[in-house]
Measured scan of single mutants.
Amino acid sequence: MTGIVKWFNADKGFGFITPDDGSKDVFVHFSAIQNDGYKSLDEGQKVSFTIESGAKGPAAGNVTSL
């Protein structure tokens, strides 16, 4: 699925993605970002991701920028 990064705190390594389908915002951890180098996201960035079952509920996985 796709969405827009609502916010991401690079110091803490997590944030939230707002899915394009209008569903509830999804937690994203830096370890789910699939790019080389520094793993961070920018507010407003368009991303593709999967929904994984995290310890505290749904979380984004396999996050790639579009």
Rank of each mutant, 00 (worst) to 15 (best):
F27D: 01
Q34E: 10
I33E: 02
D11M: 14
I17H: 00
V63S: 01
V63H: 01
K46Y: 10
G22F: 06
A55Q: 13
S53P: 15
V26Y: 05
I33R: 02
H29Y: 06
I17C: 01
H29S: 05
T64H: 13
I17T: 00
K56N: 12
Q45D: 12
Q34H: 10
K12P: 02
F49T: 01
L41K: 01
S48P: 00
A10P: 13
F30D: 03
S48C: 12
D42G: 12
G44N: 06
N62F: 11
D20A: 08
A55Y: 13
F14R: 02
K6W: 03
D25Q: 06
A59K: 15
V5M: 03
V5K: 00
A60S: 03
V26K: 03
P58H: 10
S31R: 10
V26C: 05
S31L: 08
G15L: 02
I51Y: 10
T50K: 07
G54E: 10
A55G: 11
F49N: 00
A32V: 10
S31V: 05
W7P: 00
D20K: 05
F8G: 01
A10N: 11
A55N: 12
I51W: 08
P19S: 04
K39L: 08
S31I: 05
G61L: 13
A32F: 04
W7T: 03
A60V: 04
S53E: 14
G13C: 04
D42M: 14
K39G: 07
V5Y: 00
S23W: 05
D11R: 14
Y38V: 12
G15P: 00
F8S: 01
T64S: 11
K24W: 07
K12D: 04
D25P: 07
F8D: 01
G22Q: 07
V47R: 00
G44E: 03
V28E: 00
L66K: 07
T2Q: 08
E43R: 15
V5A: 02
A32R: 07
S65W: 12
P19R: 04
S65V: 15
T2K: 07
I51R: 09
K6Q: 05
K6M: 04
S23P: 05
Y38D: 09
G13K: 04
S48D: 04
S40Q: 11
W7C: 07
F16S: 03
N35M: 15
N9K: 08
V28Y: 04
G37W: 07
N9C: 13
G37H: 09
G44R: 05
I33N: 03
I33Q: 03
V47E: 00
D20Y: 07
I4V: 14
V63P: 01
P58R: 15
F8A: 02
K46Q: 09
G22R: 06
D42H: 15
T64M: 12
F8I: 03
V26R: 02
F49A: 01
F30V: 13
D11G: 12
P19T: 05
S48G: 09
W7I: 04
D21P: 03
D42T: 15
A59S: 13
G57E: 04
A32W: 04
A32K: 09
Q34L: 14
W7R: 04
A32G: 08
G3W: 01
A10V: 12
D36R: 10
T18D: 03
S40R: 12
V26S: 01
V28N: 00
S53G: 10
A32P: 02
S53M: 15
F16G: 02
V5E: 01
S23D: 07
S40I: 13
V5G: 00
G61Y: 12
I51S: 05
D25I: 05
P58V: 13
L66A: 09
D36T: 12
S23H: 07
S23E: 07
G44T: 03
S31N: 07
K46I: 11
N35T: 14
S48W: 14
A10C: 14
T18K: 13
F49K: 00
D36L: 11
V63N: 01
K6L: 05
A60R: 02
I4N: 06
P19K: 03
G15C: 01
K46V: 10
N35G: 15
G61V: 15
G61S: 14
Y38F: 14
S31C: 09
G22I: 03
M1S: 08
N9A: 08
Q34M: 14
N35A: 14
N62T: 09
F16I: 06
N9H: 09
S48F: 13
S31G: 06
V5R: 00
G44D: 04
G15N: 00
N62L: 10
T18S: 11
P19V: 05
F27P: 03
E52V: 15
F8Y: 11
V47C: 04
D36E: 14
K24R: 13
L41T: 02
K24A: 14
K24M: 11
V47F: 01
V63Y: 00
L41S: 01
E43S: 15
E52M: 12
H29G: 03
S65I: 15
V5D: 01
G37C: 13
F14S: 02
K56A: 11
K6I: 06
A59N: 10
D20L: 08
E43T: 15
P58N: 10
F49H: 01
P58D: 10
Q45P: 01
D21T: 07
K56F: 15
I4A: 06
A32E: 07
G13I: 01
K24I: 10
K39A: 08
D42L: 15
K24N: 12
G22D: 05
D11A: 14
F16T: 03
T64R: 14
A60H: 02
D21M: 06
Y38S: 10
F30M: 11
G37V: 08
N35R: 10
T2H: 07
D11K: 14
F49P: 00
P19N: 04
